[in-house]
Design a protein around this nucleic acid. Structure first.
Length: 141
DNA sequence: TCCATGCGCGGCC
DNA sequence: GGCCGCGCAGTGG
């Protein structure tokens, strides 16, 4: 059963040591993938891990780059992203307005940043010039 | 360097 | 609908 919103007793600011712990806690179930969710229900959680060059973690908003088109070695986008199921999940979240748990890689592990809502999306050239999905998330008040 | 782990989707009853 | 297999991933020992 997919859970949207807070999970168990975990609250923003909590730090877990690894992706495995995030998974066991239910904060972010996939052990490697950055987007948790389905095209039909939407995304329930995402992870920012300094892997995508087009990410922006701002004071009052997050720009989260969509999935795909990336060279794992260089970290740069090397092809246009496509509308895959993970990106569809975030588009779906924008439609439903369901909150998305945001986790962010930190020095000591993965920090639970809190609940965000997907309020915008675009498909445009990123830093490397290839088309990327960009999702705009703002904190849930 | 290698590979485990969790899961969404699609195919097939 | 339920089960199974496939492919893949914002890791990590």
């Amino acid at each position: 059963m997919r859970i949207f919103g807070h999970v168990s007793y975990y609250r923003p600011g909590d730090v877990l040591a690894s992706r495995l712990e995030l998974s066991r806690a239910g904060l972010h179930r996939p052990t490697r993938a950055g987007i948790s969710g389905s095209a039909q229900e939407g995304a329930d959680s995402i992870v920012l891990a300094d892997q995508y060059e087009d990410d922006v973690f701002g004071e009052d908003e997050i720009i989260y780059a969509g999935h795909g088109g990336r060279d794992p070695k260089t970290g740069h986008q090397t092809t246009d992203q496509d509308l895959n199921d993970r990106n569809r999940a975030l588009l779906r979240s924008q439609e439903t307005g369901q909150p998305v748990r945001v986790l962010r890689k930190a020095a000591d592990g993965y920090r639970y940043e809190g609940l965000y809502r997907v309020v915008g999306s675009s498909y445009e050239p990123g830093r490397s010039g290839f088309q990327v999905w960009l999702f705009r998330l703002v904190p849930v008040v």
